Simulated assay, not measured.
Amino acid sequence: MSAIYSVKEIYIYPIKSLAGISLESAKAEEMGFENDRRWMLIDAENQMLTQREHRIMSQFYPQISNGKISITFQDQKQEFSISEHLENVIEVNVWDDKSEVVEVNLETSKWFSQHLGFQCKLVKILKNGARKHESSRLKETFNVSLADGYPYLMIGSKSLDFLNDKLDEKITIKRFRPNIVVSTENPHEEDDFKTFAIGEVQFKNIKPCGRCVMVNNDPENGRLKKEPLKTLSKYRNVDNSVLFGTNIVSLNSGIIRVGDEVIF
């Protein structure tokens, strides 16, 4: 590929299904970017909570500073240390994968319970290997965080441009919750990337990402809309899966930065 491809945006989502954080640089690890989806909310039956059922989760905004994560919801704020957790291990499922997690602290769980209106806990995955995900396509097993399936989601800029050309109401890339947004020349060409390097890190493409109704949740206000899934399903439906963006894994640890070239 002769074109210059480069990183336009980097995002992490410290707590699964809450709002993301835009970064200028990030440390890639096997499980995903550092502090990306290492935490999630579970209900009283230890089932994971996501925006699919609780759209209000998109209105909780995290920030990371000085070893602490602060969460803002409306005019309320809660803070906890990145390193803190209780000792009791809880076994949860992230889709079909079993994962071992621990509760962060009782105060933070109570805060989320009050604002969501039902009992829940904030939990953390502690170590690499606490959750394994098997790729049915590659017959490989990956150590992953609490993300839906794979450590990283990458989207090309032209894929969003192409979609927006078809929509009456334009949307931002935040609808799709990517980790890496790269400048591209053609829509969806990221689906065909094989292995490539960004900054210090080698990445491997696994498969295009099948999307669910969650992309219809407007992150600006938490309201469910008909788009973009309705339009995407007309031209990106493959084997009953609506594709947008691609799942990738890192082959080593290192730093990537906005502006880094994608090297094939």
Rank of each mutant, 00 (worst) to 15 (best):
Q47N: 12
V89M: 13
L49S: 13
N237K: 10
L251A: 06
K194W: 00
I125F: 06
G199C: 15
R131S: 06
V101M: 01
T184Q: 02
S157W: 05
N143T: 07
D161E: 15
Y5N: 02
N221Y: 06
S113C: 09
S135T: 02
I21A: 03
I171A: 11
R223D: 04
D148K: 09
K124Y: 11
N240H: 09
S113I: 05
T195Q: 12
I82Y: 06
F203N: 02
T195A: 13
R211D: 02
N93D: 06
C209F: 12
N252M: 06
S17M: 14
G254N: 10
K132L: 15
H54I: 09
I12R: 05
L41T: 06
N88G: 00
I71K: 03
N216H: 12
N88S: 13
K77W: 00
L106A: 15
L153P: 05
Q63P: 01
I263F: 00
W95C: 04
V123M: 07
D260F: 11
V201I: 09
L163S: 09
R137I: 14
R223F: 03
Q59T: 07
N237E: 01
Q114I: 00
I125A: 05
T108R: 06
I180S: 02
K170I: 12
S17R: 13
G222M: 03
G149F: 10
D165V: 09
F196N: 03
V215T: 15
E185C: 07
F112D: 03
T195E: 14
E220R: 09
G32R: 02
D191G: 01
L138T: 13
I82F: 10
F203K: 01
M214C: 10
I248A: 07
P62M: 02
S99E: 01
H54F: 13
K225N: 05
I71P: 04
F112W: 09
N186G: 01
D97L: 07
L106Y: 15
N240T: 04
K226P: 07
V89S: 11
D97W: 12
V181H: 11
D260A: 12
S65N: 10
S136T: 06
F118Q: 10
V102K: 14
S22H: 09
Q119K: 15
I248L: 09
L229G: 03
E84P: 00
L23Y: 06
I173S: 11
L167Y: 02
M1W: 13
D161F: 09
F176M: 08
I10D: 07
I171Y: 06
V213R: 04
S159G: 15
R37I: 02
F73W: 11
L49R: 11
S81P: 05
L167V: 15
Q76E: 14
Y235Q: 04
F264M: 07
E134S: 12
K124R: 14
W39T: 00
M57Q: 04
E100H: 10
F264S: 12
F60K: 07
Q114E: 14
I256A: 14
T72R: 15
V201N: 12
D218W: 08
S22C: 02
K16D: 08
Q63Y: 04
I198Y: 01
H133V: 08
I56W: 03
A26Y: 01
N217Q: 13
I69P: 08
Q59M: 13
V213A: 10
E24M: 03
K234G: 02
K124P: 12
